[in-house]
Write a protein that binds this DNA or RNA. Structure first.
Lengths: 206, 206
DNA sequence: TAGATTGTTAATCGATTAACAATC
DNA sequence: TAGATTGTTAATCGATTAACAATC
């Protein structure tokens, strides 16, 4: 929508706005103020208005924000109005849990295949192909894929990510306990459970 | 160790230092400079030194840092030298994946039990009790438990967290797609996969 | 009209970066 | 000694907060 550089700090809050607006919407609430949003999300009203203003003026002075309008705007800003295809690489426990993760539907993401070096143990699921990693090149050349979900051991995470990137994948969702980062128009989000657990223990040790 | 307030920004980096130091240690590297750390972690050397100075001077002017010494110091700062017990609440796909998550050993965390409203479908795992949620009160009164891992649906996440908190649990590791936060000496880390996926899609849509 | 609330600019705050004396 | 590198203070930068005119 806009092309000024949005800070990581703001990007972190965008999904929270969207989630809250969905809640309001399903409660049939029609209007909301920056004050109300700020209270619910534990931030300041100034911050809410500043954040939203990065993408345009969605409110009405003296009135507030129209819930449905702002929800749709946020959905578009986040890119959730478009359908995205994904493959899972690594059929271990996390990989398996991800394949059947129901939340994908909310984000308009469709998992089309799961790859592993050893496919026999993998449960088949309707709509999801189970393939050997050796099929990766062939599969990606035939099936446009937006997101690769990396759930292999940390030793293989980087090389697998690079392999799919070289095959044209532009988004990496990484679950291996290692920070991946690529330049060149490739985006990456790391879910590092191990780091999160360490932070929890750190905080609980004070 | 220290009791000045450490910013969330610094806390986020602590596990990364520790992880890197473990790597150096297993490669038999004995000394490291803030410059080398900063390059590996994609931050500045100033930041590394500032961060470490929050907890004390671990280096030697002109020489750098002793890897083993700094690694041990970080381990202690993070609280990983002490054993922690945990229970998993919710035996769905994520819960099941977590029970057998190997990474717990690295953080000195031991999962002792998993609770669900319906326990028949749950695989038993050596050392992990499978119990009905109705046993929660009884179990926690008998077994000192540091961490509750919440992997129930978002509708039940807050109430389950409050229930274990009222029973004395002080740390919540939340996997439900909702932000939990408690005052009163209770710490919480949220792993919000849904938000992470939205941020990935946002970034890929630019 | 009076009250509420936005969009927007200015002030404040905190985190990052730069600089450098001390020292190995 | 010369080069490297810390601990630490000062400068810079960016994000958050405050303030307020415009307006419904």
């Amino acid at each position: 929508m806009e092309n000024k550089q949005i800070s990581e700090r703001v990007i972190e809050r965008l999904p929270k706005y969207y989630r809250y607006l969905k809640d309001l919407s399903s409660s049939q609430i029609e209007r909301v103020s920056s004050k109300t949003i700020s209270t619910a999300l534990n931030i300041t009203a100034s911050q809410v208005r500043q954040d939203l203003m990065h993408f345009g003026g969605f409110g009405q002075t003296g009135i507030g924000y129209d819930v449905e309008f702002l929800k749709s705007a946020m959905q578009e800003i986040l890119g959730l109005n478009k359908r995205h295809t994904a493959i899972v690489i690594g059929g271990g426990r996390i990989g398996q849990a991800l394949i059947s993760y129901k939340g994908f539907a909310d984000e308009n993401v469709f998992v089309t295949a799961v790859f592993d070096v050893e496919t026999e143990h993998l449960k088949t699921l309707s709509g999801v192909s189970v393939l050997n990693v050796s099929e990766l090149e062939n599969y990606l050349s035939l099936n446009k894929t937006d997101i690769a979900i990396i759930s292999v051991q940390k030793e293989y995470a980087e090389q697998m990510a690079k392999r799919v990137i070289s095959l044209g994948v532009k988004s990496i969702w990484n679950f291996a306990p290692i920070d991946l980062n690529f330049g060149d128009g490739v985006v990456c989000e790391n879910i590092n459970m191990s780091e999160s657990l360490m932070r929890l223990i750190y905080k609980s040790s004070r």
